Amino acid sequence: MCENFKSDPLENQGDVVRRIRLENQKIENYVDMALYYARSEDVYKDYVIRRTNLGEIAVVVLKRNKGYLIQSQIQAEVDCKDKAYTDEKWIAFILNQLVLNAAKYCRKKGGKIWIYTSQKHKSDALTKHSHGVRLVVKDNGIGIKEEELDRIFEKGFTGSNGRKTERSTGMGLYLCKKLCLKLGIEIYARSKAGEGTEVILEFPISS
């Protein structure tokens, strides 16, 4: 499955209507974050683990944020051929946070986000699983300084990049990490300042 989301101009919408919709979407995202944070201690009461089409989840997340991506002139591409055992609702929330984070720090011109899956068959120094499915959210944005990379999942940590924008709360990646631990998913990041970032979700083989 491969879909390409391009930043085409919004048609037949006044500027005021467009801005209202974008602000409503931002409010909805913050409300979601607050709700999931409140429920994060009791994930086990609200999840259903089943074989999940990660590509379909990615497409839904991108469509939800289409207006913001278009406004920011960011293209997004999905190529997810693999499925994993997880909870659809919770993984959609996690992926939504990762997409928003990638978009926030994308380059101003030629920004792009890739969401894709791959199979893992051998050990990796960054992860504990010897095999499974990787879901990767990659961007060509401003990247993360090497000395800050190990701290990006800490609660409230915004780093030097976050201090440049008033939209940074330091809660998105922290909550992703917390929920991933509850769901048995490994999450880690690779990045280089000025060259973009990859956040990887690793689902162990399950049945």
Results as ranks from 00 to 15, higher is better:
Arg50Ser: 11
Val136Phe: 04
Lys138Trp: 13
Asn101Asp: 11
Lys155Trp: 07
Val43Pro: 03
Leu95Gly: 04
Ile70Asp: 06
Lys120His: 02
Glu148Asp: 11
Ser130Met: 06
Tyr174Ala: 04
Ser191Leu: 11
Arg51Ser: 09
Ala58Val: 07
Leu62Pro: 02
Gly196Ala: 05
Ile91Cys: 07
Glu28Tyr: 12
Asn53Leu: 11
His131Glu: 04
Gly184Ile: 00
Lys6Leu: 12
Glu166Trp: 05
Gly111Leu: 02
Trp114Glu: 14
Thr165Ala: 05
Asn4Trp: 03
Lys122Phe: 13
Glu28Gln: 15
Phe93Val: 06
Ala38His: 13
Lys177Thr: 05
Gln119Pro: 03
Ile113Trp: 04
Leu175Gln: 04
Lys104Asp: 12
Tyr105Gly: 07
Gly194Asp: 06
Ser123Val: 11
Tyr37Cys: 01
Phe157Asn: 05
Gln75Pro: 00
Pro9Met: 06
Ile187Lys: 02
Val199Ile: 15
Arg107Asn: 10
Ala102Glu: 08
Gly55His: 02
Met33Ala: 13
Met1Ile: 10
Glu198Ser: 11
Lys6Ala: 08
Ile200Arg: 04
Gly196Asn: 10
Asn140Gln: 05
Ala103Gln: 06
Pro9Cys: 10
His129Leu: 08
Gly14Ile: 07
Ser72Thr: 13
Ser130Gln: 09
Gly143Lys: 08
Asn53Asp: 15
Tyr30Trp: 14
Val16Gln: 09
Ser40Ala: 15
Ile200Lys: 04
Leu100Phe: 03
Arg50Lys: 14
Leu135Arg: 00
Val16Trp: 10
Lys6Tyr: 10
Thr86Pro: 03
Arg19Cys: 01
Ile27Asp: 12
Ile27Phe: 14
Phe5Ala: 04
Ile74Ala: 15
Tyr85Ile: 00
Lys81Leu: 12
Glu186Gln: 08
Lys104Trp: 00
Val136Gln: 11
Tyr116Trp: 09
Gly170Leu: 02
Lys104His: 12
Arg39Phe: 13
Ile205Val: 07
Ile91Gly: 05
Ala34Gln: 13
Glu202Lys: 03
Ser207Val: 00
Leu35Asp: 15
Tyr36Ile: 11
Phe157Gln: 03
Asp32Val: 00
Asn161Met: 04
Glu28Ile: 15
Lys122Val: 09
Leu22Cys: 08
Cys80Glu: 04
Val48Leu: 11
Ser206Asp: 01
Ala84Gly: 04
Lys81Thr: 12
Val43His: 05
Tyr188Met: 08
Leu201Thr: 07
Lys178Thr: 09
Ile185Arg: 00
Leu149Ser: 06
Ala34Thr: 12
Tyr37Leu: 14
Ser206Asn: 01
Gly184Pro: 01
Leu62Met: 11
Asn4Ser: 07
Arg19Ile: 01
Met33Phe: 11
Leu175Asp: 02
Leu69Ser: 10
Leu35Phe: 15
Leu126Ile: 03
Arg163Thr: 09
Met171Tyr: 10
Leu175Trp: 02
Lys112Gly: 15
Lys66Cys: 05
Ala103Val: 08
Leu173Thr: 06
Ile91Trp: 04
Gly110Cys: 09
Thr117Asn: 07
Thr86Asp: 01
Tyr105Cys: 12
Lys178Gln: 09
Phe93Ile: 07
Gln71Arg: 14
Val60Leu: 12
His121Met: 09
Arg163Ile: 09
Lys164Phe: 01
Ile94Pro: 05
Glu154Cys: 06
Ala189His: 09
Ser206Cys: 01
His121Asp: 11
